[in-house]
Computed example of a mutant assay.
Amino acid sequence: MRISTSGRICLFGEHQDYLGLPVIAAAISRRISIDGTYRNDDQVILHLPDLGIREDFSLRDTFPYVVQRDYFRSTINVLRRKGLVFSRGFECTIHGNIPINSGTSSSSALIVSWAHFLDRMSDNPANYSQKELGEIANAAEVLEFGEPGGMMDHYSTAIGNVIYLESTPEIKVETLTPKLGTFVLGDSLEPKDTLGILARCRFGMEDVIKKVTSFNPQFSIFSTPPEHLTDYRNILSDDELGLLRANVEDRDILLEGKALLSQSAEEAVDQLFDKHFGDLLYRHYKNLRDFKRTSTPKIERMMDAALLAGALGGKINGSGGGGCMFVYAPEKAEEVAAAIEREGGKSYIITVDSGTRIEDANP
């Protein structure tokens, strides 16, 4: 049995899901696969040659967890609680070409693949839907260990293509089917400063919202229009007001992006659509760069070079402070990729892809 799952990029709503705001994400044509078969005992043996790692354990020995993020065991436990039975072990090889630790959801794609593989190889397969597999992976990776984290990565990699995800007041997933051209993903090869970025983007913004709602209980991050933000000049510093304005603008950029991506094929005139889409991505990037400060000098050089080479727009991807950026380049993708590499990045030409899927059903 061979299962593969895509990585993902966040198109709109970066650093907004933890505020309860929606996101739009796209699965990409970089994937992680699990290729495995049954064993005649209860051992689970996992070969990860890309990382030079081998992991093995018994199906009788899946709890307590032995490492901090014991996702292979936790996924089995989540599925067992849902009623799946495993009477035989497995031997699997895991390969992937998603950049690791770069904001493209390689970890979530791996756990979605593992959940999908386990479901199909259990004694009593439930044949979970892609959405359900995303929820199972989120439970195994986030809920099982009490870690903070949204559903975007798991839903996006599992369901694939382009999704719109709301988390407030309840989870709502909508599949979008835009006709998107080529992207170029650029890995800066810089380690991400996830904790430092979160301290500013999340905790800093949560403090701003507390100040503003104490002053005006009618304020809402979901609906207050940007022209009303000047009302808070006397209670916020310039830095805080800039962060608030950036989040409200990014909220509205997402809504404009959703309307654009929801257009019918007849409504979307290719060149006008592509330019509008690229402009929205870059507007989002400027807020992330200038007010949320998630970019780095190297990523800025990569972005500038890509735009000069013909990209129509783009943004930093993931938590930021390093990691990946991407640009929309429906034309001149190879020239754009070369420009990113001249600035010291690693480039990948990518397209929107399907979610988790069976590549070979032979167990």
Score class of each variant (00 low, 15 high):
Leu272His: 09
Pro297Asn: 10
Val269Trp: 04
Phe273Glu: 02
Ser295Ala: 14
Leu254Lys: 03
Asp290Trp: 05
Lys258Val: 14
Leu312Pro: 07
Leu255Val: 07
Lys286Ala: 11
Ala268Val: 04
Gly314His: 10
Thr296Arg: 08
Leu308Gly: 14
Leu288Asp: 06
Met303Asn: 06
Leu281Ala: 09
Asn287Val: 07
Asp252Thr: 04
Gln271Lys: 15
Phe277Val: 04
Asp279His: 10
Leu307Phe: 10
Arg251Glu: 00
Gly257Pro: 05
Glu266Thr: 04
Asp290Tyr: 08
Pro297Ala: 12
Gln263Leu: 14
Gln271Pro: 00
Ser295His: 00
Asp252Asn: 10
Glu267His: 03
Ile316Asn: 00
Gly278Thr: 07
Phe277Ser: 06
Leu281Asp: 10
Phe273Lys: 03
Ile253Glu: 02
Lys275Gly: 05
Arg283Pro: 09
Gly314Asp: 11
Leu260Gln: 00
Thr296Ala: 08
Glu300Asp: 15
Gly310Ile: 03
Val269Thr: 08
Leu255Gln: 14
Asp274Trp: 02
Arg251Asn: 04
Leu260Trp: 04
Tyr282Met: 14
Leu288Pro: 07
Asp279Leu: 04
Leu272Pro: 00
Lys258His: 12
His276Asp: 03
Leu308Val: 10
Asp250Val: 06
Ile316Met: 07
Asp252Met: 02
Ala309Asn: 12
Phe273Tyr: 08
Asp270Leu: 07
Arg293Ile: 03
Ala259Pro: 00
Phe277Lys: 05
Ala305Thr: 10
Gly318Ala: 05
Asn317Leu: 05
Arg293Val: 04
Glu267Cys: 00
Asp250Ala: 11
Asp290Glu: 14
Arg289Glu: 15
Leu281Trp: 13
Ser264Thr: 15
Ile299Glu: 13
Tyr282Pro: 01
Ala265Leu: 09
Leu281Pro: 11
Ala305Leu: 11
Ala259Trp: 03
Ser262Gly: 09
Lys315Cys: 08
Asp252Ala: 01
Gln271Tyr: 11
Leu308Pro: 01
Ile299Thr: 04
Leu312Val: 09
Glu266His: 09
Gly310Thr: 09
Leu280Cys: 01
Phe277Met: 08
Ala309Gly: 12
Leu260Thr: 05
Ala311Ile: 13
Thr296Asp: 07
Gln263His: 08
Asp270Gly: 00
Ala311Gly: 11
Asp274Gln: 12
Ala309Gln: 11
Lys315Ile: 09
Asn287Gln: 13
Arg293Gly: 06
Lys258Tyr: 04
Glu256Gly: 04
Ala311Ser: 13
Arg293Leu: 12
Arg283Leu: 15
Arg301Gln: 15
Leu254Asn: 01
Arg251Tyr: 07
Lys315His: 11
Leu280Asn: 13
Lys292Ala: 15
Ser262Ala: 10
Gly318His: 07
Arg293Ala: 03
His284Trp: 00
Lys286Pro: 02
Asp304Cys: 01
Asp279Val: 04
Ala311Thr: 10
Asp270Glu: 14
Phe277Arg: 07
Leu281Met: 13
Leu254Pro: 00
Asp252Gly: 01
Arg293Thr: 05
Tyr282Glu: 15
Ala265Cys: 00
Lys298Phe: 06
Val269Lys: 13
Asp290Val: 06
Gly314Glu: 12
Asp279Gly: 09
Arg289Asp: 12
Ala306Gly: 15
Ala306Lys: 05
Arg251Cys: 01
Asp304Phe: 13
Leu260Asn: 03
Phe291Glu: 15
